[in-house]
């Protein structure tokens, strides 16, 4: 049941604990159109966060990091769009995408109230946590559930990109202290 899987992933996202995702059962598999939607949404969320950071960040390193996120996630999503077009798949909205978007807009509002160094710190900390959560979802759910080989491939590249971003964010966070 996809609904149950969505509830599990939504709970995990709220708790920012990718480990919880492992509790979901194989039977709770999302479909390829749902996976494509989730992956695309995850990219859009980080693009929006980066746009906010470009306006609000104070530190040069944080601004540069936001530019890197914008560039990479736009490139991944461009590939994702080209692939769904090629495969003739229509991404399908679902509870996981909705939960991700809701949590992201709450976070944007929360960060919007901060400024200066406080914003920089909170943005980078959230980037670390967010990439960790998405990596957990990719590794334990999205990649194993994907049935189309090209989609699986793109998700695997996405995972490497996201893992790179997580490490990059951790470096930036360490420099801010």
């Amino acid at each position: 049941m996809f609904v149950r899987w969505s509830a599990a992933i939504a709970a995990a996202i709220l708790l920012s604990s990718p480990a919880l995702l492992q509790g979901a059962r194989a039977a709770d598999k999302p479909t390829d159109p749902q996976i494509a939607h989730i992956a695309y949404t995850a990219g859009v969320i980080d693009i929006n966060a980066a746009k906010q950071a470009q306006k609000k960040a104070k530190s040069k390193d944080v601004k540069a990091f936001a530019a890197d996120m914008l560039r990479d996630h736009e490139a991944v999503n461009k590939q994702a769009l080209a692939l769904v077009k090629k495969l003739n798949v229509t991404p399908e909205d679902n509870d996981t995408s909705k939960a991700l978007s809701k949590q992201a807009s709450d976070k944007l509002a929360e960060l919007d109230k901060l400024s200066g160094a406080a914003f920089d710190k909170a943005y980078v900390a959230n980037e670390v946590a967010y990439h960790k959560t998405v990596n957990g979802a990719l590794e334990t759910q999205l990649i194993p559930s994907a049935s189309n080989a090209e989609l699986k491939n793109l998700l695997q590249t996405g995972l490497k990109i996201f893992q790179g971003h997580q490490q990059h964010a951790e470096h930036v966070a360490a420099e801010l202290k």
């Binding site: 790179g164 990059h168 470096h171």
Partner: peptide, 8 residues
């Protein structure tokens, strides 16, 4: 390594 993707 790659500064953007330190896992490279």
């Amino acid at each position: 390594y790659c500064r953007y993707h330190p896992n490279m």
